[in-house]
Design a protein around this nucleic acid. Sequence first.
RNA 1: GGAGGCAUCGCCUAGCCCGGUCUAUGGCGCCGCACUGCUAAUGCGGUUUGGGUCUCAAGCCCAUCGAGGGUUCAAAUCCCUCUGCCUCCGCCA
Length: 439
Amino acid sequence: MIDPLVLRTDPDRIRESQRRRGENVELVDELVAADIAKRQAQTAFDELRSEQKGLGKRIGPLQGALKKAGTDEARQDAQTELDSLMTQAQALSDRVKEAERSAAAAGDVVDALWLQVSNLVNLESPIGGEEDFTVLEEVGTPRDFEAEGIEARDHLELGELLGAIDVERGAKVSGSRFFYLTGPGALLEFALLNLAMQQAVEHGLVPMITPSLVLPSAMEGTGFLGQAAENVYRIEQDDMYLVGTSEVPLAGYHSDEIIDGDRLPLRYAGWSSCYRREAGSYGKDTRGIIRVHQFDKVEMFVFCRPEDAEAEHAQLLAWEREFVDALEIPYRVIDVATGDLGSSAARKFDIEAWVPTQGTYREITSTSNTTEFQARRLRIRMRDGEQTRPLATLNGTLCAMPRVIVALLENHQQADGSVAIPAALRPFLGGRSAFTPVQ
RNA sequence: GGAGGCAUCGCCUAGCCCGGUCUAUGGCGCCGCACUGCUAAUGCGGUUUGGGUCUCAAGCCCAUCGAGGGUUCAAAUCCCUCUGCCUCCGCCA
């Protein structure tokens, strides 16, 4: 959610943001009107309630006086006054209840509208849709397999050759877009997990293993029940959701809390399974494990002062690059365009790894600066001297297993179908320097 | 799954039976001031969070006693539902 003060003082800023995202601009006008209506209703209730409390404050003592009254005359006077007050109070009671209902209803209208408004975009973000990103940098050089005289195999062929990936049985047991990592594949994931966590801990992030099933409040607070809702698995019987990223439980970790300013930034590295319905991507990436319904991921998450958020964002990107560098995979960094940010992000950088058999770069990490948007929704605040105010949250992928495995296998493959293991990963694989085809 | 207990403004705690000066008690912690070579001690004052009003601030008003409903002129207090924690029983590992 955006600071309501912006709506009252500079609604054009929100309109411009919605426009750049290609989202509903009229929403802002509805919100302006609803916000005014809500405040009027609230004030009306406050005044009636105040009146009611004033009456109540006189009735109590009067009843005491009535009991203690010494003479019939005194008793009579007290009774008369009490009756009069009670009549007024009874009449007021219905009006108070009515005003309370109106105020609550007006508040609900405003809340529902706010949930539809996306975060204010950063004005540096390139404007446009999915294809309108800016390339910030290209790192490493894709191998020229033709020059090496190698017929490049794709990750699935390699994975099957190595006995590392089994999608056929994944489909047999769970349906399409499910897979097994077997033998060396499973060991590879553990190695990647260990390398990622080692790096995270070196940088002072707190390692976390999070729930992957969460309540609606956590899902909504992180902004995944908006346009992204169709990609979320819902457990209807228990009214819970399977998370698509540990960003959700990590953000929710401090919900409803007020954190001392001098404890910030708080940085975490969460490990969890991630579940995505992949609705609307029928026919896309149907081969292999590039797009799957369930995978594991190490995700970084930061709570910091809003004024430090951009620096933290740069830091997260640097740590993502460090990890991909260690795996010796060629990649590029892109500045994601406004139409492709998702509702929470003000700015987003993706790292895309070179995938030889596709002759293109594919997303393997994504880091978002969600500014105060999620913190407001989840009621996470910081104590800053005298005042209490929302903090900023950021997230970034450290290692999304399937896509890293894809990039690793394809980029490091050898003529005989074996795959070289980058030096950084070897300590976590018993010193092995390559995976070799079975039999 | 069954039975019972508990949930109060950072932490602990009083209040609930019997509704109304509750504007929620006291202690600890914390902040400010005073006193004092310094520190400590002591004294005084302050210390939930959110919203509204207001140019700002101050002030004032409203809400907030786990959450949501209800009863009532009036709810921390009475009733119902839910959530979490604890104890016991059952079941499973």
